[in-house]
Design a protein around this nucleic acid. Structure first.
Length: 619
RNA sequence: GGGGCGGUAGCUCAAUUGGUUAGAGUACCGGACUGUCGAUCCGGUGGUUGCGGGUUCGAGUCCCGUCCGCCUCGCCA
């Protein structure tokens, strides 16, 4: 075989006159009969090859070149020369071409279902996933793989420089049925028992701290058997981290340093120090725990004012949970967003759609009012619920800070529903108004934010039981510790008010990392398990190893995990997670290329003491 | 588990109100062509309209079921 001396992205006019060998795929061919041009492609670029009948004495090479088609794999030898037909400015190698003197066809292709060509419209994703090896040949996919590689390398270097040890943890793990649904793996040795694939290596990394490893890092695969979305799939990658003998702010500083290094080295962006926002502020002003601060459109709680209007829909909402404390999930509230310029841009069709939109989050609808110019030139309220607001027009305009041309949108419901609905609505309105800047390439902002001071616990909507907001190993914030230990389990108000030492990094409205100071004290951990409704026996059965480890000298420790796929998505500028994973899965968890999952022979099931109850049709 | 969108030639798409032989571009095959770079020109092959059933004189089109893909609600400690 003619082993390459250069790659297809390498030759420049300074190489003219050299004899070279290239290997690669036929990216395109232009056959002029006695003159054939081939663009040869590899990971590094394209180089034009020329076959000239006059140079081919026997004619055999010309005959073979004539038969070359897209995606054939070839090796060639020839001389570099300046292009006779003029430069192609689209190619890095566009000034030169290789006049081929020897051609070796390494592999002929069958007619491919599609060619990895970016100038044409991409085929549908199903086909791209089925023939992923073809799709991955596309330059933009190669670029993404390269970017992801950069993220791995910068990550390892940064944490190595900061004294972190990279340690692998098991993939076959113990089932701890809390949180996400787990993937199960049956045991062959002990009939009827199962491993679970880890939702995260959370407990192992804590044990590593107890083991004296001090600082741990792993780029690890995590598994959560829940329905996917555009930005998540069941199998994903985390940058998992844990540190000993630190408090919250030290972890946050270290991780901020990582974010700064990563953005600097991957895309040359200087990230300023991250702002911090309390969970409560995020929920009140943005209606979500991962606020997108690239645009304003703050949410206002106008319950008090709304209660004076005599508007039945508002009154009905406000009557709910009247005696409950502020921010209680079942207390009725009225929330509003002022949309500057909305009177013109938010058409009736759009605002009607908002009602349908918020219904998906359980709210009844969206009330609308526009601030228009009255005959006297002063602001006047128009459309929607204007007639209910008109008597208190001045108060309303002052309260919301309205100007002519605004639209104000209202959602009234119990706190949890109204907050979620208007928070989602805020993001939709921002898109409709065209006020969401694109990050990255277009020079738009990267808005990073720490969100802190999450509640320790929240009520499960169905069961009414307490569940950990982050996870059950999250510590109360330092100043809350005593109150937590002293709290009566039945004291709902106190329990609800306990703030954790958790922290999330939010980027442009997306959670890219989440972590917390961990509990390193048996008694505190025991109390959390108790609150979560576990008897001491149940806690022991599930987490005895952790509780025991905490009893043998556990250092204070804290950690965080970054969603690596999401980091790469941001660098690539895609909102499709499958674009940044080499071999992704579909919404039903299928790998269209390998056709996983698949049935297995009964003998294999027998080995692991499992019987399929579903009538799996043999494929 | 729920809601929405989609599936027509290898690929990207078209096909009037249900109407007679389902078209185009591209790829592929054959031919021509010595400076192209989305080469060009001429000719040709290529269809279980995802699958199954129904309504109808007649279904790519309407109805029911089903499979697959995407988006989404729930879910994702």
């Amino acid at each position: 075989m003619l082993i390459r001396t250069h790659t297809c992205g390498q030759l420049r006019d300074s190489d003219v006159g050299k004899s070279v060998r290239l290997n690669g795929w036929v990216n395109s061919y232009r056959d002029h009969g006695n003159l054939i041009f081939i663009d040869l492609r590899d990971r590094y670029g394209l180089t034009q090859l020329v076959f000239d009948k006059e140079d081919d004495k026997g004619g055999a090479m010309m005959e073979a070149a004539d038969k070359l088609r897209n995606e054939d794999v070839v090796a060639v030898e020839g001389a570099v020369r300046v292009r006779i037909g003029g430069e192609n400015p689209k190619l890095e190698t566009g000034k030169v071409e290789v006049v081929v003197s020897k051609l070796e066809v390494l592999s002929k292709t069958a007619n491919p279902p599609f060619i990895p060509d970016e100038t044409q419209k991409l085929p549908n994703e199903e086909l791209r996933l089925t023939h992923r090896y073809l799709d991955l040949r596309r330059p933009s996919m190669q670029k993404t793989l390269g970017l992801r590689h950069r993220v791995y390398q910068v990550t390892r270097r940064y944490f190595d420089e900061n004294g972190f040890l990279e340690i692998e943890t098991p993939v076959l793990y113990k089932s701890t049925p809390e949180g996400a649904r787990e993937f199960l793996v049956p045991s062959r040795h002990v009939p009827g028992t199962f491993y679970a694939l880890p939702q995260s290596p959370q407990l192992f990394k804590q044990i590593l701290m107890v083991s004296g490893c001090d600082r741990y890092m792993q780029i690890c695969r995590c598994f959560r058997d829940e329905d996917p979305r555009a930005d998540r799939q069941a199998e994903f990658t985390q940058i998992d981290l844990e540190m000993s003998f630190v408090r919250r702010d030290q972890v946050m500083e270290t991780m901020e340093g990582f974010v700064r290094r990563l953005w600097k080295e991957v895309c040359g962006v200087e990230v300023p120090p991250l702002k911090r926002m309390a969970y409560r502020e995020a929920m009140e002003e943005y209606g979500i725990d991962r606020p997108d601060t690239r645009y304003d459109l703050r949410i206002r709680d106008i319950s008090e004012f709304a209660g004076t209007l005599g508007f039945a829909i508002f009154d009905g909402a406000l009557a709910k949970g009247k005696d409950r404390p502020r921010f209680n999930s079942k207390r009725g509230v009225v929330k509003a967003i002022r949309v500057p310029g909305g009177a013109e841009k938010l058409t009736r069709k759009l605002t009607d759609g908002y009602t349908e939109f918020v219904k998906t989050f359980g709210a009844g609808g969206v009330a609308v009012v526009k601030v228009v110019k009255g005959e006297d030139g002063a602001p006047k309220l128009d459309t929607g619920i204007a007639k209910f607001l008109e008597p208190k027009r001045a108060d309303f305009i002052a309260l919301m800070g309205c100007e002519i041309g605004d639209t104000v949108l209202f959602v009234a419901d119990v706190y949890s529903v109204a907050t979620k609905a208007i928070g989602e609505l805020r993001q939709k309105v921002a898109r409709d108004m065209g006020v969401v800047p694109k990050p990255g390439a277009e020079g738009g902002p990267w808005n990073f934010l720490w969100v802190v001071d999450f509640p320790m616990f929240e009520r499960n909507k169905e069961t009414g039981k307490w569940v950990a907001m982050h996870h059950p190993f999250t510590s109360p914030r330092d100043d809350q510790m005593q109150a937590f230990l002293d709290a009566d389990v039945e004291d709902e108000v106190t329990i609800e008010g306990i703030v954790s030492a958790g922290y999330d990094i939010v980027l442009n409205g997306q959670e890219i990392a989440g972590g917390s100071v961990r509990i390193h004290d048996q008694a505190v951990q025991g109390k959390v398990f108790q609150l979560l409704g576990m008897t001491p026996e149940q806690a022991k059965e599930k987490f005895s190893f952790l509780l025991e480890a905490l009893g043998y000298g556990a250092p204070p420790h804290a950690g965080i995990a970054f969603g690596l796929d999401r980091l790469v998505m941001n660098f690539v500028g895609t909102d499709n997670i499958r674009d940044v994973i080499a071999f992704p899965k579909t919404q039903t968890g299928a790998d269209l290329m390998t056709r996983a999952p698949s049935t297995v022979p009964n003998s294999q099931l027998k080995d692991v003491h499992v019987q399929a109850i579903a009538p799996a049709s043999p494929s």
